[in-house]
């Protein structure tokens, strides 16, 4: 007679022991993430890998071996790789030391208007890339009335077609990146700086260390983990840059491909010309490229070395 109740009680206990089990419960809790990760990351990566060996067309999807990869050896792709690499290097050179020094200023006790600068420097990161780039396109307009041409006009220079010359268009791209990301990187470095114990600096100054000595021998080494982190995400961000280049020229088509990035080329081939298989091959190459660069960099800076 009591059977059903007994059963449900047993089931209840079973469920309880399942949920409270220290072995199983963690997996239950992380399962939403794991599922999302599998469906939206692992699966696309695998299927991109497969598609990179195919021509992908409705009704005519077939394997074509490594043809997509051999097709990559063309001047346009090389130009895209060159652009992405140069852009990445330039942003690294400017966007790591600059924000690091600025963060030191903002962290210093003697700085006036600290909070004001902290918030204003961060504002550009909050604007949408599309809006910001559209404004930059107007700033770097080629007519004499554009802001940049008016500024150089004050110094007696003639108007420049900023976005139609390789060097100046890259300057515009890098300028935009600096404007946008300085605040974010400052934030990273600030959080790192605030983790440096005050005593270390104090005892150093008691021992007579100058400001520069303290910066080079205390601040910089102690910021290493943060610097490596910023470096890693900057390499990834630089290699995958697309929106800025797309918006600066109003389309994916910059003159002589002077602003074409690897993602831009992927977009052009995959979507604009419906060569999805080829687009996948470009994506895979970019992935390997970014992984390789970051692996080399992390190795070089000793992230994989055991702390002694």
């Amino acid at each position: 007679m009591n059977n059903p109740n007994k059963k449900s009680a047993e089931a209840h206990r079973g469920l309880q022991s399942f949920l409270y089990s220290p072995k199983i419960a963690p997996y239950v809790f992380i399962s939403p993430f794991v599922l999302v990760f599998i469906v939206f990351f692992i699966y696309p990566v695998i299927s991109t890998g497969i598609m990179s060996f195919q021509t992908v067309l409705p009704g005519k999807t077939e394997f074509i071996g490594v043809e997509n990869y051999t097709n990559l050896f063309n001047p346009t792709f090389l130009k895209a790789v060159q652009n992405s690499v140069v852009y990445t290097i330039l942003t690294l050179v400017l966007l790591i030391p600059g924000p690091m020094i600025l963060a030191c200023f903002l962290n210093s006790k003697n700085m006036i208007g600290k909070n004001f600068f902290r918030s204003t420097l961060f504002i550009p990161a909050l604007t949408s890339a599309v809006v910001a780039t559209t404004i930059f396109r107007l700033i770097f307009g080629e007519l004499s009335g554009s802001l940049m041409n008016q500024i150089i006009g004050l110094f007696g220079f003639k108007p420049i077609k900023w976005l139609r010359i390789q060097e100046t268009s890259f300057a515009a791209l890098v300028f935009l990146a600096c404007w946008r990301w300085t605040g974010v990187n400052i934030l990273y470095f600030l959080s790192g700086l605030q983790n440096i114990p005050e005593e270390v600096n104090e005892s150093a100054s008691l021992d007579g260390a100058t400001v520069w000595q303290r910066f080079f021998y205390i601040t910089m080494p102690m910021l290493r983990p943060i610097t490596i982190y910023v470096l890693t995400i900057s390499i990834y961000g630089g290699m995958s840059m697309f929106t800025e280049s797309y918006m600066l020229w109003g389309s994916n088509k910059s003159p002589k491909d002077m602003g074409l990035t690897i993602i831009g080329y992927l977009y052009r081939q995959g979507w604009e010309q419906n060569n999805i298989g080829f687009g996948c091959a470009i994506g895979i190459v970019l992935l390997l490229f970014a992984l390789l660069l970051n692996f080399a960099q992390l190795n070089l800076f000793g992230l994989f070395r055991k702390e002694e």
Binding site: R164, D257, Q273
Partner: peptide
């Protein structure tokens, strides 16, 4: 055509006239 248009819009005409 999409491929040829791309070439014209990015390189060919720019190199020719600029």
């Amino acid at each position: 055509l999409p491929k040829v248009m791309d070439a014209l819009k990015t390189t060919t005409l720019f190199r020719a006239f600029e």
